[in-house]
């Protein structure tokens, strides 16, 4: 019930004085209430739960995470070490 999924805002409009919008989930378009993300702009990604966008996905934070992973895997793989500088363990 609490699963909420990311989707891209493709249209904004007003309905009963509530901010609403069309959300694109990898090709499937659905309506959602955007009253809880009043600052949202077309093109941004939001997390949607039961027809309501709860938050705008922070692209900066997401990019930081991705960059960290890239660095982590690349460095470790090149040296055969984990990020603490220990040799990678052999697992079954």
């Amino acid at each position: 019930m609490c699963s909420a999924i990311p989707g891209k805002v493709i249209e904004l409009y007003d309905k009963n004085s509530m901010l609403m919008g069309k959300i694109d989930y990898a090709g499937t378009i659905k309506e959602a209430c955007l009253a809880y993300v009043p600052e949202v702009a077309v093109g941004q990604y939001v997390i949607v739960h039961a027809g309501f966008a709860l938050n705008i996905i922070n692209e900066e934070e997401a990019k930081k995470t991705f960059a960290l992973w890239d660095e982590m895997t690349a460095k470790a793989e090149s040296e055969g070490l984990d990020i603490f500088g220990m040799p990678l363990k052999d697992k079954k």
Partner: peptide, 24 residues
């Protein structure tokens, strides 16, 4: 899908699993 597949990447997952083993 954007912001979904990245967080299901087995390569990243494996890396973090290794880190958890080292840290514990």
């Amino acid at each position: 899908m954007r912001y979904l597949d990245e967080f299901r990447d087995p390569k990243i997952a494996k890396k973090i699993v290794e880190e958890i083993h080292t840290a514990t």
